[in-house]
Amino acid sequence: MRKLRYILCLLLLIYGFDLQAQIAPISQSYREEKQEKIQSRWARLIPKQNKLQFAGSMGMFSGSVGWYYGKRNQWETDWYLGFIPKTQNQKGHMTTTLKQTYTPWRLTIKDGFFIEPLTTGIYINKIFGEYFWTKLPDRYPENYYFWAVDTRFNIFAGQAFTWQLNDSHRGKEFSFFYEISTNDLYLISAVGNKTITLRDIIGLSFGFRYRVF
């Protein structure tokens, strides 16, 4: 019985389109409709914003492509590539970051100027380089070190200031944001130590956000 059902499903998949075609012969408009549907679905994946961020334990400068979504556009997801410049003591590095931002409010200050009084979220940063590993190298006994040296989990809170771009040729809006952040290892270090204060474990970063459409 089950086998039969599978076969029927398979047949429907293969001949489904043909059946439809037999019922209503392929018209130009149907094809266009279908095409539009597929295109609009994929179009949602086109990044709608860019960010350029300075510092924040994810590189010196990091640039991103990202998306904003939700009923009140309260969610943002950004994917960054960043770099750490070569210095006298160390090689240069590439970094990559996946960042999720939650913005509960947007306040209108005046026409075309908004404040997001709180932006908060998490980001995962990965650094690429010889001494940075995700999985403990084979030469170590099992569980020798418990953390992935190249991957840091960060939390942040900040604010953003947004200007609407009136000239639609230039895009939708432009924002300045700043954040304070810390990461998993700093938090672990601060726990149970009164010597390590909040001031010791936070970092500051700022950047620009550009929404195209």
């Binding site: 510092a55 334990s57 590189g59 750490i84 210095t87 040296v149 700043y178 970092g203 500051l204």
Partner: peptide, 17 residues
């Protein structure tokens, strides 16, 4: 005010030298 506080707040990476 935040921006003018000391530069050491701007961290590029926790393992930076």
């Amino acid at each position: 005010l935040l921006l003018t506080t000391s530069c050491e707040l701007f961290e590029y990476h926790p393992y930076d030298t």
